[in-house]
Design a protein around this nucleic acid. Structure first.
Lengths: 241, 241
DNA sequence: TGGAACAAGTGGTATATACAACCTGACCAG
DNA sequence: CTGGTCAGGTTGTATATACCACTTGTTCCA
C-alpha cells in the first residue's frame, strides 16, 4: 500500500519497479505484473500505475506489447553515459579523478558563429572561460565556454577551478541546463591544442561543439572542446522515430 | 471537435499542435491554450488533452511551468539529425546524394569483441557485410556491419548496394531497429581506410562503433565505421536527468 | 505604504469507470 | 487434424471528477 505524502504515488511505484529491474530481481524479457495486478497490490488506480510504467518505458527500462503484457528490456551498455553532464560528472561516471585548471576568463563580445548558436546579436557581451580538464592528473581536454544569461557577469567572481559550472548555473543562478545539442568532428591537433594537451601537432583530437539549453529551450552556453583522441571516447544513444 | 475514428483523439490533437508550432503559427515562448481550454475547444476530456501535451513536451516542442501554463520551446538546431538512421536516410537529411558499394559479404563466426556487443557466444555465425558509402559520388565512410538474428543467413541473397539494410530488416525480416548505442573516437587513418576513402594515411577519421537494438532491447547489429574527418560531423542531443 | 489574505487561473496527482484492440489458449465442429 | 469461435487475459484510449501545489493579480486591512 503506497502512502500519500510528499512523494507522489506514481513515483514511489516507479522507483520500486526500477529497483527490481536494475537490481536484477526481474531479468530481461520477463513480464512484470500486469497493470491491474499492480493496482491491487499497491492499492492505487490503474491510471496511476500506468504513469509509472509509461515513464519507465520512455526511459528504456521496459517495453509493452499490446494484448500480451509489459516486459523488462535488455539493459543497454551505455545507460549511464548519455546524459548531459559537465566534465566532472562525466569523469566520475568513468571512474576517473577529474581536475580543472582555469586558463583565463573575461567578458567578451559575441562573434558571428557564437551569436548564431546562442540566438543573440553579434557583439553582445558574454562570459567566457577557458579551462584545461584533467583526468587522473593527465590533460584530457581544453574547453572554451561562452555563457549568456541576464546577470552572467557575476560569474567573473566564481571559483571555476573547484566549483562545477553546471552546478553553479543551476543552484545559484537559477539557470538549470536541461538539454544540449552537440556536433562532433575528428581533427588533427594544432600547435595550441597540442601544447595544452601534451601531445604532438598532428595527433588526433575530437572537436566537440556544444550548445546548452535551459528548460525553456533558451540557449545558455556555447562550448568548444578539444579532447585527446587516444584517451577519450564519446558515447550516445539514438532512437528511431 | 475531434472525430472518433482509427486515429486516436489524443494523436489528432498532438498533430494539430505540432503543426502550429513547427509552422511558426505559435512562436517560441508563447503560451499555448491551457489544458482546460483545449478540452472545451476540441470537445475532449482533460486527461486526453494532457496526453497530447505530455508527448510533445517529451519530444522537446513544448515546456510546462506549474501554475503558469505550457509554452512553445525554442527550436533546436539538430532537431532532424539525431534520430537513429541508416546511412541513406542520414545523407538525405543532410541534402547529399547517397550511394553504396558492397565490398564483400559472408557468414562469419563472432570474435570476442563482437560477441560481447551482441550478447552472444563467440563463434556463433553472423552475417557480415562491408560497404563503402559515398555522398555526392565522393567516398565518405567505410562500414562493416555484423548482423545477428534467427534467419540472418538469408541476407546473403539481398542486393545491399541498392536496398537499405534497415528497411530490409524492418519490412522483410520483422526485425525493426529501434535504438542504438554508439561510441565515437577520433583516429588517424590507416593504410586500408585511407585507400578506400581516398585520403592519406594519417588524415583524421571518425571511428564509430554502433550496437543496434530491436524494440525488445535485443542486440541486432554491431557496426564499425570510419568516416572522413574533413567531410563528416556527428550530431547528438543530451538530456539532463 | 506595506503586507496579508483571498480568488482565480494554471499544471500535477489521483480515482473510478468503460469500452476497444489485440493475444492466447481452450473448445468444438467439420 | 484443421479451422473457427469464444472466453478471458493484456494494453490502448477516453471520460468525468476531485483535490493539491503553485502563480498572479486584486482587495483590503493595519
Amino acid at each position: 500500500m503506497l502512502k500519500n505524502g510528499p512523494v507522489p504515488r506514481y513515483y514511489q511505484l516507479k522507483e520500486i519497479i526500477r529497483q527490481k529491474v536494475t537490481g536484477g530481481q526481474w531479468g530481461p524479457g520477463t513480464p512484470i505484473p500486469s497493470e491491474r495486478e499492480l493496482c491491487e497490490q499497491y492499492g492505487i488506480s490503474r491510471m496511476t500505475a500506468r504513469q509509472s510504467i509509461t515513464e519507465l518505458v520512455n526511459e528504456g527500462y521496459l517495453y509493452r506489447e499490446q494484448g500480451k503484457g509489459t516486459f523488462v528490456a535488455q539493459p543497454k551498455i551505455t545507460q549511464q553515459l548519455i546524459q548531459l553532464t559537465g566534465f566532472t560528472e562525466d569523469m566520475e561516471a568513468r571512474s576517473k579523478r577529474p581536475a580543472t585548471q582555469v586558463l583565463n576568463r573575461a567578458m567578451v563580445p559575441a562573434d558571428a558563429a557564437t551569436a548564431t548558436a546562442l540566438r543573440i546579436k553579434p557583439g553582445q557581451l558574454l562570459f567566457r572561460v577557458q579551462r584545461l580538464r584533467l583526468a587522473n592528473d593527465e590533460p584530457l581536454a581544453v574547453e572554451t565556454s561562452l555563457i549568456n544569461f541576464i546577470g552572467c557577469e557575476h560569474l567573473m567572481d566564481e571559483d571555476l577551478g573547484h566549483e562545477s559550472l553546471y552546478q553553479l548555473l543551476e543552484k545559484k543562478y537559477g539557470q538549470p541546463p536541461l538539454e544540449a545539442d552537440q556536433e562532433l568532428e575528428a581533427r588533427l591537433a594544432g600547435d595550441e591544442e597540442a601544447r595544452w594537451l601534451k601531445i604532438s601537432r598532428g595527433d588526433p583530437v575530437l572537436l566537440i561543439r556544444r550548445t546548452t539549453y535551459t528548460d525553456r529551450g533558451q540557449p545558455l552556453e556555447f562550448a568548444r572542446s578539444f579532447y585527446r583522441g587516444d584517451k577519450y571516447r564519446f558515447y550516445t544513444r539514438l532512437h528511431r522515430k
